[in-house]
Design a protein around this nucleic acid. Structure first.
Lengths: 349, 349
DNA sequence: TTTTAACACGAAAACGTTTTCGTGAGTACC
DNA sequence: GGTACTCACGAAAACGTTTTCGTGTTAAAA
C-alpha cells in the first residue's frame, strides 16, 4: 500500500526542485524538453495527480458545490440532484449533499459545516420548519461571507439571491382549467397549509382558474392538509380526511391535488366510494413522481421538470462563481421560472 | 461582504502571534487566562470558524466520504444515501455524491476526481457496465493507494474489501416459498440477465425454493429481461415480453419478479388478460420502493432495508478510517449481510 | 546574589500546490 | 574581452491550520 505520490517525492527522486517538477508537468516553457520528458514520464509511471485539497487551499476555490435539501427519498429532490450533478460534473465541479430532514437546526448545522471552506456555493431548498419559523439569518450570514446561494422550488421573497422556481400558479391554473374544460362543475382542491409557499401559490392558481371560468370557489371544497406529520406513515389519516370531503360534497366531479400522494389517495378513496375515474371523477396531481405514471388509472399531472431545475440552478451558481467578481459592481440576482407541462394520462377525459 | 476571518487576521488585530491565537482558541494551558478571554471573545464576535480545507491539508484527513451510485432517481439508492448521510453526519463526516449513471467510464472518472485527496474513503455500488466488462482495476488501484472502499448491494467476489449485501438468495427463497405455500403450482420468474450479481442470486433463490418443495423448475417459466435499455422508457417492450410469457403459459398462477417495475408490469399485463390478483395470480416483487405500497392491488415484496444498508456501510467505512492503522497488521475485511423481510400486502393471499 | 523553574508567548515547520522572482551558466554581439 | 541576452532552473512565499520547540521574563529557591 503506497501513499499517493507528491511533487516533493518526484523532485527528490529525480534530483530537481519542486518548482521544476510543477512547471514541467504544466508544460512550462521555462523547462527544457529533456527535463520535461523525464518528469512527465516519471509522473505518468507513478500515476501522479495533484492533490485537490492543496489546490483548493492555494486557489481558495474548492470546485465543489453544496446542495441542501429537506429529503432525499423523494423523486422531485433526487431528480433535482441529478440535474445539479450532471451540470456540475461537466463543468468540473463536485457535489456535496446535505439533508435538512425538514428541520431548521439540521439545516443550520449542515450549512455551517459546509460554509467553512468546504464548498464554493450553495444550492438549496428551504426546510418546512425554517419556512414556518421564518428565521433566515443563516442564509444571510452565508451570503455576507461571500458565498453565493441559489434557492430552488421552496423560496422566500425576503431573501435576495438567485432562484429557480416552478411556475406554480400557472401550472395549477392550467390543471384546473383543464378540469373545467373537461366538464367538471364542482372541483375540489387538496392542498397543504399555507406556510409552504408552493402550496399557497398552487391554491391561488386554483382560485384564478375558477374565476377565469366564472366559477365560484367554495371553501368547503378546499381541503388543507397539515403535512407536518409524515403522511407516508399516516396514510389512513389522510384518506380519512379525503373521505370526509367526498361524503360531505357528493357532487364533486373533479379533484386537483398539490402533490402526488394526495392525488393517489383521492383516487383510492373515490374507488372505494364506487366512483369511476375518469367518468365520475377526474383527478389531476402536481408532481414529477413515479407513482403517477404507474398508478391505476395512471394520473394526469402537472410536471415540474425537476431535473431541469437542478441544471438551471447549477448553471446559475457556477456562472456566478466564475464570473470574476468585478468589485463594487452592483450584484444582480436572477430568478428563473421553469414552465410546467400538463401530462395527460388516464385520470382525465 | 466580508471574507471569512482567519487566525492571521485575529492575530494582527490583537497584536499577538498566530500560534497564540490558535492555542487560545483551543484552551491551551500555555496561554494566560487574560489572553484566552480576549482572543475567544474576539473570535466569537467575528464568528471565527477554522477553515476546513486547511485542516484537511494539515491532518491529511478530509472527514468526507464519497458515495458513488449508478443512479440517484431510484428509491433504493436514495434510501441508501439517506442511511449513509445519517451516520456520516452524526459521526462528523460529510458526503460527496457521484453518479456513474451505470457507465464504466463515468464511474472511473468520478472515482479519480474524488480519490485525489477530496475524500477519505468510498462507499459504492458497481455500475452495470462495469459488471459486464468485469474491469475492476480502478477499485484495486484506489485501495492500493490506501483509500478504503465499502461496496454495497452490487458487489463482486473478485475484490477484497468491506461489503454490505442483501441476502438475495434467502429473500428470494422466502418469497417463492410463500407462493408455493399459498398454493401456486406454476410460478414464473421475471429476472435480469445474469451479469448483475443480484439477478443471479435471486434466480438461484427461486430455484432453491422450488427444489425444496419438490417442484421442478421449468425454463419456459423464466423470463430474463435485458435491462441494458432503460426500462422506464421502454415500458411497452417490457410489457410485451411479459404478455408473451403469460400467453405461452396459461397455467401460471404465481409470479416472482426481481424488482418493482417487473412486478408491477406483470400485474398490469395480468389485469389486461383478465386475471384477478390475488385469486388467479399471486405476485411478489423484490424491492424497497414506493410503487409497491401504492399500487393496486398493493404489492407483496421482499424488503431490502436500504437505509439500514447505508448506515451499516457508513459505519463500516468510518470504523476502518478511525481504527488507527496499526502497521503490518493483516487487514481484515467484513461482509455484512442484511436480512430481508417479506412484507405481505394485497397481491398475495 | 545566583540558580532554577514556571509561565506566557513566538518562530518555524509541516501539509501539497503554484507562481514570482532571482541567479548562474552559456552564447552572441560589438 | 566585456556587455547583454537567453536559457534552465531553484528559492521562497502564499493559502490557513496545528504543534513542536525554543526563549525571554519573572518569581521562587538556594
Amino acid at each position: 500500500m503506497k501513499r499517493k505520490i507528491t511533487l516533493k517525492q518526484i523532485a527528490r527522486e529525480l534530483d530537481v526542485s519542486i518548482s521544476t517538477v510543477s512547471k514541467a508537468l504544466r508544460n512550462s516553457v521555462e523547462i527544457s524538453d529533456d527535463t520535461k520528458q523525464k518528469v512527465q514520464a516519471f509522473a505518468k509511471l507513478y500515476n501522479y495527480r495533484p492533490n485537490n485539497i492543496a489546490l483548493s487551499l492555494k486557489n481558495r476555490k474548492t470546485n465543489t458545490i453544496g446542495i441542501i435539501i429537506p429529503e432525499i427519498v423523494h423523486h422531485f429532490f433526487s431528480k433535482v440532484i441529478r440535474g445539479v450533478e450532471l451540470v456540475a460534473n461537466t463543468r468540473g465541479y463536485n457535489v456535496i449533499v446535505g439533508l435538512s430532514n425538514e428541520s431548521f437546526s439540521k439545516e443550520v448545522i449542515n450549512m455551517e459545516m459546509l460554509a467553512n471552506g468546504s464548498i464554493d456555493g450553495f444550492i438549496l431548498s428551504i426546510s418546512k420548519e425554517t419556512l414556518q419559523q421564518q428565521d433566515y439569518h443563516h442564509f444571510n450570514e452565508t451570503m455576507n461571507q461571500g458565498m453565493p446561494i441559489v434557492m430552488f422550488d421552496r423560496v422566500v421573497s425576503d431573501i435576495n439571491c438567485d432562484k429557480v422556481i416552478v411556475d406554480d400558479l400557472d401550472g395549477s391554473k392550467k390543471a384546473v382549467s383543464k378540469l373545467v374544460e373537461n366538464g367538471c362543475k364542482s372541483i375540489a382542491l387538496i392542498t397543504t397549509k399555507d406556510y409552504v409557499s408552493v402550496g399557497k401559490l398552487r391554491t391561488q392558481g386554483y382560485m384564478d382558474a375558477l374565476n377565469d371560468h366564472k366559477l365560484i370557489p367554495k371553501s368547503e371544497l378546499i381541503l388543507k392538509i397539515d403535512d407536518s406529520l409524515d403522511y407516508e406513515v399516516h396514510l389512513d389519516a389522510l384518506e380519512n380526511e379525503i373521505e370526509q370531503l367526498f361524503k360531505a360534497n357528493k357532487n364533486i366531479d373533479g379533484v386537483f391535488a398539490v402533490n402526488e400522494l394526495y392525488a393517489l389517495s383521492a383516487m383510492k378513496v373515490a374507488r372505494k366510494l364506487g366512483l369511476d375515474i375518469p367518468n365520475d371523477l377526474q383527478v389531476i396531481g402536481f408532481t414529477d413522481g413515479v407513482l403517477s405514471k404507474h398508478a391505476t388509472p395512471s394520473l394526469t399531472t402537472v410536471s415540474q421538470h425537476a431535473q431541469k431545475m437542478g441544471e438551471q440552478a447549477a448553471n446559475l451558481l457556477i456562472d456566478k462563481l466564475e464570473k470574476g467578481l468585478n468589485e463594487d459592481e452592483e450584484e444582480h440576482f436572477n430568478t428563473i421560472v421553469i414552465n410546467t407541462e400538463l401530462i395527460e394520462r388516464a385520470s382525465t377525459k
